[in-house]
Amino acid sequence: MKLLKVIDYAAIVDMHRTRSKESHYNHLPIDVGNRDRFFSAQPIDLQFHINNHTANLESGIFSFNSSIKSGEDKNDKVSGEVFLRKESKHKPNVIFVHGWRMDSYDRIKKIFHDKIVKNYDWNIYYYTLPYHFNREPQNSTYSGEHMISANISRTVQSSQQAIVELRGLIKWIKENEGGEIIVVGISLGGWLTNLLATVEKHVNIVVSAFYANNIAHSIWNTLPGKYIRRDLEKHGTTHEELDKAWDIMNPSKAKLLVDKENVLLISGKYDMYIDINDADTLWNSWNQPKRYLYSCGHAGIVLSRNRIAADTLQFIESRLKK
């Protein structure tokens, strides 16, 4: 256990070598109003740019304009990687949602990609979160810096943008391709996948690994959020105020719309990025769907990737057969 925590701690120290140079603090009022309306699905004009063809697979980039405008042109253009079967219609569609500060899809691909391409007749979409990868603004210090920060209202809007975009993508797939919708999220992507599962009834299967639940709690009580917390406290924000401002982003406060039997949660017992008690809160609030507790830390995303792949793909396969 100590070694696992040391590995996580060393990774956090290394992560914090790159951190925000200036304060992001801002707390402009944001009227979220009705939750369903705030996260409502919007139609998208999805474009494919296919540049690679094999015997049974074609791949390239998908793109569309976000219906939520952040004011950052780069951030408001959504793109991701897509891998479509030659006969793609009515096949299962897997959407992957990556983690905070990731700067490529590589970690997720190393877990799942080759196994899916080789063994399953599924379409694959790799979605890019707001302010990450090519959506990162010019003045950003690291990928995802502007998504989760002491800018309280922008963080809420970023979650809105991600959920609305994912719902738009799902709506397009359902209307144009058909087939089951499977969403797999890792770390921050796991939290957003859980949030999506409380507003989008057309998701058939959800897998969420190493997820947070209450982002305000994570910022206040875990090491990855310490510099954001410091920025907030410097400007007089309390944990209670942050918790209230970010309440709409808390999936445990909302009803699960996906069939509970089609939800798999994965957590690490010794995760220093995610408070296991916070992960427990979500699991209990959703009446304890299927869950795996690994004896690892957040580094299990790398160190336990074969197990993550096996557990996830077996679960998806079993639910698709129902």
Rank of each mutant, 00 (worst) to 15 (best):
N277Y: 12
I182W: 07
L242H: 06
R307A: 13
G236M: 00
R37P: 00
E261Y: 06
R135I: 08
R17V: 00
I215T: 12
S295N: 12
S304N: 14
I61E: 08
E240L: 08
N221E: 08
R107C: 10
K244A: 14
H235C: 07
I124W: 09
N221T: 11
Q161M: 14
R19V: 01
N34L: 00
S59V: 06
N123E: 07
T312W: 03
Q160W: 08
I182E: 07
A41Y: 09
H202P: 00
W191Y: 15
N213H: 02
S318I: 03
V156G: 09
L188G: 03
S79T: 05
G179P: 09
D36A: 02
V156N: 10
E241P: 02
A197K: 02
F210S: 01
T141W: 11
L196A: 04
N287W: 00
A299K: 01
I108T: 14
K290F: 08
H98G: 08
L169G: 03
V207S: 02
F38G: 02
E22V: 05
E180H: 10
L265M: 14
I182Q: 04
K269C: 07
P92N: 05
S59L: 04
A197N: 07
I181C: 01
N65M: 09
S218E: 12
I163S: 02
I215C: 11
I248F: 01
V78N: 03
Q138Y: 14
S285C: 08
E233C: 00
W122T: 01
H49T: 13
I186E: 07
N139F: 14
K118D: 15
Y25E: 10
I182Y: 05
L232C: 10
V82M: 06
D271V: 10
K2L: 15
Q138A: 13
K226F: 15
S153P: 11
D8L: 01
I186P: 02
G236H: 00
K269M: 12
R17Y: 00
R17C: 00
N287A: 13
G300N: 03
S66R: 09
R85W: 04
K234M: 11
R229E: 02
W246I: 12
L57R: 14
M102G: 12
Q160Y: 08
